[in-house]
Design a binder for these strands. Structure first.
Length: 466
RNA sequence: GGUCGGAUGGCCGAGAGGCGAGGCUCGGGACUGCAAAUCCCGCUACACGGGUUCAAAUCCCGUUCCGACCUCCA
């Protein structure tokens, strides 16, 4: 039963294509990872969720998956093409650049786990793969796809690769000079669209390495070619990344990789669309950056963010807001509570639940149509003709794909001793019918960020979401 | 300028030619010492102009407006 194909939208062919294992053993997936000079914001996380969804789905269908994601800790230049992002941040925080990289890398992994994004098999760091990159650059020079410029940098010759532009649709003849090109000394590049594989150190003293072309550091695009070919044994079944990486990053990577192995190196290119926050693209320059830690501070379950992402197809733009996060948080809580109740019903029609599960799996394998899959869960929740036991079976099974920890009991951040005492006092006051006092204590708790509700079995409390 | 998307009720948002997805807000009710939560009820839309069809939010043509990308970026 579990031998269906996962269909994904391939940017290069602009069509749905099945995810396949080219060696018949495992599916080889590579995803562009973070540049670790700051915390990843929730927009970044949306793209990283894509890798998780694909791997969950592929594994569910019975594939063995090998998943590699790089950590960029060197060579990613800031806007002006002059300073390395990591070095700039190291200067700003007065720390060692490698220390900066490790700090933000650790925080990245923490954010992933908050969103239930399962880890990749390996997270190679660019700074630890220098030799691999140098080997690849040497090969490209040998094959005359790359050359040493008069400025001591090694450049890839864009015109030496006839297939350039297939992913993005940008043809070389339409890439006219005049845009913001990578900075070089005049005349070092033979052609304006050539890019650096190895950059000469110049005045730079940190994060530089010896090379056959002198001291320097790698260009940004070469790391992904080197790592994907090295760790995935010269072929990538699926390459993932954010839509903005389509050009130039992936276009350049493809040129490098294909020229190295003399064949197409990547079967499928899948790109995740951007996240907007309250109407605008999430970016430092828009001032609307939201971090996973911001959600936690507001007492939102980080998985509410995951749920918001799932309510939108990965390749459409989506607009996130505090309101939608709050609504998702409430829905998660409600589902978890109901699932606890449904679990008590031992009656379940297995053929009925299997059918419902299969319908949801079908949505996933149809280019990760998570919005439709969620809609099915919503109507299942409301259904009066389906037994609780069956609902439980379905939610339990498909949570392997959704990854929302739906079987968890609703958990609470623990109370301060002060709040604990006030809660107890209030319970006593209410039992003795002292309502003015209990109302006063309720106000006091509200100031501590706690809301109290009174039910038949006494009072219960919750953190107020800001 | 080029490329690609979009326009749905007070708001967000899904829509697969034929029962008005769903959520949030709001109003009414039940429940409650009150409040909150929960449950019930209510409000009801497809940018504009043509066309195809027995039937169009959905398909086709045109118009207007909006967004993203086009060598920093997930």
């Amino acid at each position: 039963m579990k031998n269906e194909n996962l269909l994904l939208f391939d940017t290069k062919s602009r069509q749905l294509q099945p995810l396949k294992s080219s060696d018949g053993k495992r599916v080889r997936i590579y995803s562009c990872g973070p540049t670790v000079y700051r915390d990843a914001h929730v927009g970044n996380m949306r793209t990283f969720l894509l890798g998780d969804l694909v791997t969950r789905c592929a594994k569910y269908l019975g594939f063995k998956v090998e998943f590699i994601q790089n950590i960029t800790d060197v060579g990613h230049m800031s806007e002006d093409f002059v300073e390395d992002k990591i070095l700039a941040q190291a200067k700003a925080e007065s720390k060692d650049p490698f220390e900066i990289a490790r700090i933000y890398e650790a925080r990245y992994h923490k954010d992933l786990s908050h969103l239930n994004i399962s880890p990749a098999d390996k997270y190679p760091r660019a700074s630890e793969c220098i030799e691999m990159m140098q080997d690849l650059i040497s090969k490209l020079i040998e094959k005359e796809h790359a050359y040493l410029g008069s400025d001591g940098c090694v450049y890839f010759s864009a015109q030496s690769f006839p297939g350039y532009g297939a992913i993005s649709g940008n043809r070389l003849d339409s890439l006219k000079p005049g845009h913001r090109f990578e900075y070089t000394e005049a005349g070092a590049k033979r052609f304006h669209a050539d890019w650096a594989l190895w950059k000469a150190a110049g005045d730079r003293t940190q994060m530089i390495w010896d090379s056959p072309w002198g001291k320097g550091f790698p260009g940004w695009h070469i790391e992904c070619s080197a790592m994907s070919l090295h760790y995935l044994d010269n072929f990538v079944d699926l390459h993932l990344g954010g839509i903005d990486l389509r050009f130039p990053h992936h276009e350049d990577e493809r040129a490098q990789s294909n020229c190295t192995i003399d064949q197409e190196a990547v079967e499928l290119w899948v790109h995740g669309e951007h996240l907007l926050f309250e109407g605008r693209k999430m970016a430092k320059s828009s001032g609307n950056v939201v971090l996973v830690s911001d959600l936690i501070e507001k007492n939102l379950d980080p998985l509410a963010l995951r749920l918001c992402f799932l309510e939108n197809r990965y390749r459409s733009q989506m607009d996130l807001s505090w309101q939608s996060l709050k609504a998702a948080h409430t829905l998660l809580q409600r589902w978890r509570e109901k699932i606890q109740l449904w679990q008590k019903d031992a009656n379940s029609d297995l053929s009925q639940s299997a059918k419902l599960i299969q319908e949801i799996v079908n949505d996933f394998i149809n280019d990760l149509d998570t919005p439709r899959a969620l809609q099915k869960l919503r109507s299942l929740e409301k259904s009066e003709s389906i037994s609780d036991g069956c609902k439980y079976q379905v939610f339990k099974e498909v949570d392997q794909l959704f990854g929302l920890n739906l079987l968890n009991q609703v958990t609470q951040k623990s109370l301060s001793p002060e709040a604990e005492i006030i809660l107890q006092q209030r319970e006593v006051a209410r039992k003795s019918g002292n309502f003015p006092e209990s109302d006063r204590l309720r106000d006091q708790l509200e100031k501590l960020g706690i809301s109290v509700k009174d039910g038949k079995s006494g009072q219960s409390w919750d953190w107020i979401i800001n």
